[in-house]
C-alpha cells in the first residue's frame, strides 16, 4: 500500500455513464484481484473515492467507474497528463483456493469491474464461468475481457442485450443445467448479493462477495466503513474486506 502520484494516460467512455481511466505510476504495483484504490479527486472533496482495480499492466493501472455524484463527475472531466493521488492497493481481494478449479463470477452493474480483475488473474489457470448483468444494452461493456472466460453469459434487466434477467438468475439457470462451480465470487448491488447468498446457502456453495461501504481513511483506522458479521462483530470493509465469505456477513 502506497500513495501514488498517478498520471492519467487515458480516460474514455466505455458504456453509457461508465468510464475507464488508466494511470501510469512510477513503479510496478503488486495487486491481488478484487483489491481497490482510493482516488483523490481533489479540490473541496475531502474524501477519496474507493474504486476497484480492474486491470494492471506493469506500471499501468486501470479503473472503471460509473459517474454517480460530484467526485466521479470531476474524474470524468480529467484529461490525459493530469496527475492524481491514488492510495493502493487496498483491501484483501479475492482468493481462489488451489482445490477450487471451477470458478463462477456473478456480477451486476459496476460490480463487474473487480470480477474482471479476477478473470485476468485466474484465466488459463482455472475454469471460469462468468454471469454478468447490466441494466440495458447501453450499459454493456467489457465484452472482449468477458469473452476470455471459459463461459460468458451476459444478460440485461430489460432484455435489450442477452436474456431478460439478472446475473443471479443467469447463474441459477446454468446451475440447474448442471454447471456447478467449486466457488462463487460476486460483486454488485446489495439485493443481488442477498439473492445470491440465498442460492449459495440452498445449494451448499462456497460464495465470496465484495461489499461497498462509504469510507473515511480507506486503510482500517477510522471504523467508518464497517459491515455487520453474522457473529455479531463488525468488520471493516476497507481492510478486513471488501471481500467476505457470504456466510460470515449480514447482507
Amino acid at each position: 500500500m502506497k500513495d501514488y502520484l498517478a498520471t492519467i494516460v487515458e480516460n474514455k467512455k466505455i458504456a453509457n455513464g461508465v468510464y475507464s481511466i488508466t494511470f501510469r505510476v512510477d513503479e510496478d504495483v503488486q495487486v491481488r484481484c478484487g483489491q481497490f484504490g482510493e482516488i483523490a479527486v481533489g479540490g473541496s472533496h475531502l474524501l477519496r473515492r474507493p474504486i476497484a482495480i480492474c486491470k494492471v499492466e506493469g506500471k499501468h493501472i486501470t479503473f472503471c467507474y460509473q459517474v454517480k455524484g460530484e467526485g466521479t463527475q470531476k474524474l470524468k472531466e480529467m484529461s490525459a497528463g493530469a496527475q492524481l493521488n491514488v492510495l493502493m492497493p487496498l483491501g484483501n481481494g479475492f482468493f481462489v483456493e488451489e482445490s477450487e478449479q471451477k470458478v463462477a463470477l456473478v456480477g451486476g452493474g459496476v460490480g463487474i469491474f473487480p470480477l474482471i480483475s479476477v478473470l485476468r488473474q485466474y484465466r488459463g489457470e482455472k475454469q471460469i464461468s462468468s454471469y454478468m448483468g447490466f441494466r440495458n444494452k447501453a450499459a454493456v461493456c467489457m465484452l472482449s475481457e468477458l469473452s476470455k472466460a471459459n463461459k460468458s453469459v451476459v444478460v440485461s434487466d430489460d432484455g435489450s442485450y442477452g436474456a431478460k434477467m439478472n446475473a443471479v438468475q443467469a447463474f441459477e439457470a446454468d446451475l440447474a443445467a448442471g454447471n456447478r462451480p467449486d466457488v462463487v465470487l460476486a460483486c454488485g448491488p446489495m439485493p443481488m448479493l442477498r439473492a445470491l447468498k440465498q442460492v449459495a446457502e440452498r445449494e451448499g456453495l462456497t460464495c465470496f462477495v465484495s461489499l461497498e461501504e462509504r469510507m473515511g481513511c480507506g486503510i482500517g483506522a477510522c471504523l467508518v466503513c464497517v459491515c455487520a458479521m453474522t457473529n455479531g462483530a463488525n468488520a471493516r470493509v476497507c481492510k478486513d474486506g471488501p471481500v467476505f465469505n457470504a456466510k460470515s456477513v449480514e447482507l
Binding site: 473541496s44 472533496h45 475531502l46 461501504e213 462509504r214 469510507m215 471504523l223 467508518v224 466503513c225
Partner: peptide, 11 residues
Amino acid sequence: TPRIAESRGVI
C-alpha cells in the same frame, strides 16, 4: 452505516 458523508470542504 452509512457513517460518513461529504459536503464541500467538510465531512
